[in-house]
Design a protein around this nucleic acid. Structure first.
Lengths: 151, 151
DNA sequence: TTAAAATAGGATAAAATTATCCGAATTAAA
DNA sequence: TTTAATTCGGATAATTTTATCCTATTTTAA
């Protein structure tokens, strides 16, 4: 069973976010990274990570080049415009903000579930965090040693 | 794949919370409710709901009486002391607040994952919401028609 | 042109979560 | 004492999520 904070993101999203940060980091140095290097760096299963990267490519969050010396990258100028919400939407679909905390089919201001209002500010804060956090700042924090991708 | 807000709680937790509210509501009127009545009211699969209720009984969140005219109830005086966090802990385990948003094994102030600080206030708000919201207020809102268990 | 290094994608398997079924045990009323 | 209404608990199934495998395709360098 899930644990709220622990599984705030699905595994797929976790890997997708970490991979994107690592790709961004290397793209600043004009280095394309391979699936193998990514999986090793973020400590994720290679084949599963491949699927997620394919999703991100399809949604134009990252780009890929096939063949020898190929790999994944993000256009440098675009890194700061890639938001966490884009990554999550690409992987988990885009109905992130519409759902009900208790799974009601209809849950809104006029027909709220028991925790609707309790969750309101949390939901809004999460939404704005995801929409305002971009890959650039996350990558810079890794580079400076302020945060980590592993352990 | 999960969707952050939609699956903030597992299905098991969703059912557990809704069931607890319904039980509380009836316990105020000294009425014991059966599994069947609960599942019908909260729109959940009966057998699965039974497992969850068993968990809640084992953790003393609710109490049960076997046999004819049996069912589930919560001692009236205790309703206001049952917090959402108790229900969630009983069902999903009690490591709710310790996990990392990106699944790192060690993630804390001195070794944070890339989103650790971004999540900090959200995590804290969620924690305090769960620990401070009790069954009484949720039940009263249902009774007054301010919120709903179904649809 | 060939070989090696990559991504892409389909098929399948494993694990976790959600859901169902059924018999045992318990209780109260008839 | 029997019967009906219940919860309890074990076994199993279905579904979803996570993970693996294998082949095809693409690309570059030798």
């Amino acid at each position: 069973m899930y644990q709220i904070i622990i599984y705030m993101f699905s595994k797929a999203c976790e890997y997708g976010i970490k991979a994107s940060i690592f790709i961004a980091l290397n793209s600043y140095r004009n280095v394309r990274v391979s699936l193998k290097a990514i999986a090793k760096e973020i400590n994720s299963p290679e084949a599963f990570t491949a699927k997620i990267l394919q999703d991100l490519v399809r949604h134009h969050v990252i780009s890929s080049t096939k063949g020898a010396y190929g790999g994944f990258e993000i256009e440098k100028e675009l890194i700061s415009s890639v938001k966490l919400s884009h990554i999550v939407n690409a992987i988990d679909g885009d109905s992130i903000y519409s759902g009900c905390g208790l799974g009601l089919h209809t849950c809104d201001e006029s027909h709220p579930c028991p925790v609707h209002h309790k969750f309101k500010s949390i939901r809004e804060e999460l939404k704005s965090m995801l929409e305002n956090t971009n890959l650039e700042e996350l990558a810079l924090n890794i580079k400076s040693g302020a945060s980590f991708l592993k352990m």
